[in-house]
């Protein structure tokens, strides 16, 4: 960037033949060619000192842009939620249900079911059971009864997911008004 007007001068006639090329050859493939050639044309026109400093700057800017690209790639590909609990919301005509699968990994995991009525008040249910199934495979795992803890909170400690894949947990709520069911698709890794 230390170039002065003389640098501008000699390269200007140099442009004329280069710019003529893309004008005649209207093809997308040829576009980068005149660009790069004009850049390299411009460099030798400079003095040696400014050429060295240009090289340094070019190196710096390459490193900078590479770092920028790497950062972008990291930001894009960084795993978002690595192994945290899976939380899903669903509802039936009578209840709102929040299901937490504490460890969505192969093996056993606690499952918490938080049930409120439509107004948001904790629901009092007779039994709450959790029934895991792999719908594609046609595998059903042993159902678990969730035990009441705090108002509206039901927890089954050991729900077994015997393999990784797409599971579907059916929560069956038996209460004073009858039986309700809600299905929660979860991915077990």
């Amino acid at each position: 960037m230390t170039d002065t007007t003389p640098a501008d001068g000699p390269s200007a006639p140099g442009r004329t033949p280069a710019s003529g090329t893309p004008a005649n050859d209207v093809s997308a493939d040829n576009i980068p060619a005149p660009d790069s050639s004009t850049t390299t044309l411009g460099v030798p026109a400079d003095g040696t000192t400014s050429a060295r400093s240009t090289g340094k700057r070019r190196f710096l800017s390459t490193v900078l842009s590479l770092a920028l690209l790497a950062g972008l790639a990291l930001w894009i590909f960084w795993p978002r939620d690595a192994g945290g609990p899976a939380v899903l919301h669903n509802g039936t005509a009578a209840y709102q249900i929040k299901l937490t699968l504490h460890s969505p990994k192969r093996g056993t995991s606690p499952v918490t079911v938080h049930v409120t009525d439509r107004q948001g008040k904790p629901a009092a249910l007779t039994t709450v059971s959790v029934e895991p199934v792999m719908p594609h495979m046609g595998h059903a795992a042993a159902p678990a009864t969730a035990v009441a803890g705090a108002p509206g909170l039901y927890r089954a400690d050991n729900v077994r997911f015997f393999m990784a894949g797409a599971w579907e947990i059916t929560v069956v709520l038996r209460g004073p008004t009858g039986t309700d069911q809600a299905v929660f698709p979860v991915l077990v890794t």
Binding site: N90, G91, T92, Q96, K98, A182, V183
Partner: peptide, 18 residues
Amino acid sequence: VIPTGASTAAGELPAAGS
């Protein structure tokens, strides 16, 4: 019409089933 889908976000909208 009644929404029936599970969601990871609780959201502002009335819960599924309403």
